[in-house]
Each structure stands twice: as structure tokens, then as C-alpha cells.
């Protein structure tokens, strides 16, 4: 579906100046992901700036999720997926032979579109799973981490009296915040969020957006969203993807008020997509 359609326009990568002089925490260089002969994303080179929120926007099937999943080697388990090009984390290519993907995923965490609590675990065990299951047994440390992560995910007050009940007993919105708390508990340096609020009600959504604002202090965030207002509200930079290619990257203000590319403008104003 993606391969047969090659847009005629000249797709230019425009890296704006919103970095405030910050360095790129991650960077992709000529990143291409193929599923067999189908191209997921093609030749994408973008920087991901430290302590900034980068929003990925674009119509369904444009390669946003494929791109995001290549940033923490989530494609490793998809046999058909072939990644070429480079993904740099602090200057080092995470696809190099000597890199352990498990270590990368500790540094680059991920929150999925649908809540994914571990069904057999309590709320507490869910949050600290990333620590407990690699051998950290210190009870007071785990409790401390659990409370901090739940507070960050704006869930602590709702669940503090029932930390030992199964994670599956929570509502959908609470489960999603639980998934976020679980991702935060391992203290990743970069957090990838794939439409984290698509299954949430407006109140939970605003909780998550506030969380993104406060997390920026010490975490670099990449977020996929189909909600243009959300992209405008939470992000510092916006990247617009279309049929597997990056069309435009710039500061969110610039992309939304003065897009350089016609296609970006058409998409943002709702003319297609």
C-alpha cells in the first residue's frame, strides 16, 4: 500500500532552530525499515533533541509507528522487518553488532497505544516489574520507586490503598497510566509514546499531557499523536510523515503556523489524511 505511491514533490528535511543549542540525544541517519518488499519508512534522518518533546504526525500508515519502534529495536522480534541506516543514541549506533538490545530498551522506554498491564501481577508488581524481575529485591527501594512512578503518572492517589490488587482491575485510563508508570520506573533517558492517550477520556488525557510537560525536565520524549491540538499543546518539535517519508521537521510553532511544505499545511488543516 505504501510502496506503490511515491509522491512527486521534492521532500525536503528542514531542521529548524528549536534546539535552543541543546544537543541531539538521538539521531537517525538514512533510516529505512522494510517489511519484506514493503517499505515502512524510507531514508529518514532526524535529530531528537535532549529534553524536548518531538511529536510525530501524519496520516495512518505513514510510518510513524514503524519509525518509533526502530528507536528502541522493537523490530528485532518481527522477522520480516529489516532495518538499515543508523540510529544513534549519544553518538553510538544502537544497531551495531556489539550492542545489547536489552540495555538499549532500558535507556529508551516505550508506552504503547493500548494499555498493557501484566495480567497476573498486582499494581505494585506491575510498576516495579522492570526492577524486580532483573533481581532488585530491596523492598524499601521498590516502594519508593513505585510511589514516585505512580505520582509521576498521576495515578498514585487513586490506587495507593490497593497496590496489591491485580493491575487488570483498573479502568482503561488507569491501566494506561499504570503502563506509563511502569515505563518510568526504570528511569529511561528517552521515552517513546505511541498514541498514549488514544484510549483515554479527556481528563486522563490532560493528566498525561501535564505529565509530559513535567517529564521534559529530565527525559527526552518522542510522541505519536493523531490529535493536532495535542501535538500543538505538548511538543516542542513536530515531524510530519507521509507515505514512509519525512516531509517536514521544525519547531511546533513553525510547523503549525507557517509550514514550509504544502502537504504539511494540507494535513494540518484537515484537507487530507
Amino acid at each position: 500500500m505504501l510502496t506503490n505511491h511515491t509522491p512527486g514533490e521534492n521532500f525536503k528535511v528542514l531542521v529548524g532552530s528549536p534546539s535552543d543549542g541543546r544537543k541531539a540525544r538521538m539521531e537517525t541517519r538514512n533510516l529505512t525499515v522494510k517489511y519484506g518488499d514493503t517499505i515502512g519508512v524510507e531514508d529518514v534522518s532526524i535529530p531528537i533533541y535532549e529534553n524536548k518533546v518531538t511529536a510525530l504526525i501524519g496520516p495512518s500508515g505513514c510510518g510513524k509507528t514503524t519509525f518509533l519502534r526502530s528507536l528502541n529495536r522493537m523490530h528485532d522480534l518481527t522477522r520480516a522487518a529489516k532495518v538499515s541506516g543508523e540510529v544513534l543514541l549519544d553518538g553510538k549506533n544502537i544497531y551495531d553488532q556489539d550492542i545489547n538490545p536489552v540495555i538499549i530498551r532500558r535507556q529508551v522506554g516505550m508506552v504503547f497505544q493500548k494499555p498493557t498491564p501484566f495480567p497476573t501481577m498486582s499494581i505494585f508488581d506491575n510498576v516495579v516489574a522492570g526492577l524486580k524481575l532483573v533481581g532488585i529485591r530491596d523492598k524499601s527501594l521498590l516502594e519508593e520507586v513505585c510511589e514516585k512512578a505512580l505520582r509521576q503518572a498521576a495515578l498514585f492517589n487513586e490506587v495507593k490503598d490497593r497496590l496489591n490488587t491485580p493491575g487488570g482491575t483498573l479502568s482503561g485510563g488507569q491501566q494506561q497510566r499504570l503502563s506509563i508508570a511502569r515505563a518510568l520506573a526504570v528511569e529511561p533517558e528517552v521515552l517513546l509514546m505511541d498514541e498514549p492517550t488514544s484510549s483515554l477520556d479527556p481528563q486522563s488525557t490532560s493528566h498525561i499531557e501535564e505529565l509530559i510537560h513535567s517529564l521534559k525536565e529530565h527525559v527526552t520524549i518522542v510522541i505519536i499523536t493523531h490529535n493536532m491540538q495535542q501535538a500543538a499543546r505538548v511538543s516542542d518539535l513536530t515531524a510530519f510523515f507521509y507515505v514512509g517519508k519525512l516531509v517536514e521537521l521544525g519547531s511546533t510553532d513553525q510547523v503549525f503556523t507557517n509550514p514550509k511544505e504544502k502537504r504539511t499545511e494540507d494535513y494540518i488543516t484537515g484537507r487530507f489524511g
Partner: peptide, 29 residues
């Protein structure tokens, strides 16, 4: 067992064997 459970485990930096033992097997008990 939904594949998403495994990905959630991997995404918090668990090795693959640990994901199977601690999240997939208990769910499928």
C-alpha cells in the same frame, strides 16, 4: 496471550527469556 504483553516486557528492558518466564507463562497458566 497477546503479543503486546511481550513487547511491554521488552520495552522495560527485560531480557526475552525473563519476559517468557515472568509475564507470558503466568498469564497462560
Amino acid at each position: 496471550i497477546p503479543w503486546s504483553i511481550r513487547e511491554a516486557g521488552l520495552a522495560i528492558g527485560l531480557p526475552r527469556w525473563r519476559v517468557v518466564i515472568s509475564t507470558v507463562l503466568p498469564t497462560a497458566k
